[in-house]
């Protein structure tokens, strides 16, 4: 099974090399290979609509800029994952800033508390905030494993390994650890590893 991982890594490195030489088909193949992971990470930071589009665009711009000085092309998946987390977190701050600006400008037009918000929507918003804060507190590779677990259920272990730099046989145990970590952060569980 580990041969499968090695083959996947080799081909990622090949795509990086060919794209750096100007091969447009290789560039497109590189994007196809990682676009679902990028989307999963963008979603786990709570981005939607135009904010999500800006974050995705920025990730590919950063990759294009970075192509010529990639030191470990076989680990490009984990570079893209880290870059997507960083750009998504920054985009989320930009989005909060825009909302705060709008609220400031329209403060007199808005009710300070919207009493019409149903409890379920409030709970959902609280849950989303909890997940975002947990993702910010969790480090790689667990963070990206969780993003895929939440937004790309059923992703093959080889894909998770390719996107995180993990060996194929490590994926299941890292996923287990990442789920426990999320549970503790969200539910304040007092359970300990045994």
């Amino acid at each position: 099974m580990s041969d499968q991982t090695r083959d996947a890594s080799t081909s990622a490195a090949e795509l990086v090399g060919r794209a750096a030489d100007g091969d447009h088909a290789a560039w497109r193949a590189l994007i196809r290979r990682y676009e679902l992971m990028v989307d999963a990470v963008v979603h786990c930071h709570g981005l939607a609509g135009q904010d999500a589009e800006d974050a995705r665009q920025t990730v590919w711009c950063r990759l294009a800029e970075h192509l010529d000085d990639i030191r470990s092309p076989e680990r490009i998946g984990s570079w893209i994952a880290r870059t997507t987390h960083r750009e998504s977190a920054r985009q989320a701050r930009l989005a909060r800033r825009a909302r705060a600006l709008e609220a400031g400008e329209g403060a007199r037009l808005l009710d300070p508390v919207d009493h019409r918000t149903p409890e379920s929507e409030f709970l959902r918003a609280e849950e989303d905030r909890g997940v975002r804060e947990a993702i910010a507190a969790i480090e790689e590779p667990e963070r990206t494993v969780l993003a895929l677990d939440l937004h790309r259920p059923g992703a093959p272990a080889a894909e998770v390994a390719d996107c995180t730099g993990l060996a194929l046989e490590e994926v299941a145990s890292v996923r287990r650890r990442a789920r426990r970590r999320l549970l503790r952060l969200l539910r304040g569980s007092d359970a300990v590893d045994v």
Binding site: Q57, C61, P153
Partner: peptide, 23 residues
């Protein structure tokens, strides 16, 4: 948590054009 959360999907045409423009 998965319930009601979007599943990852392929990028929009605009993001693809942005990626190609940057390339």
């Amino acid at each position: 948590l998965r319930r009601g959360r979007p599943e990852a999907g392929p990028m929009s045409d605009r993001v693809r054009r942005a990626a190609d423009g940057a390339f």
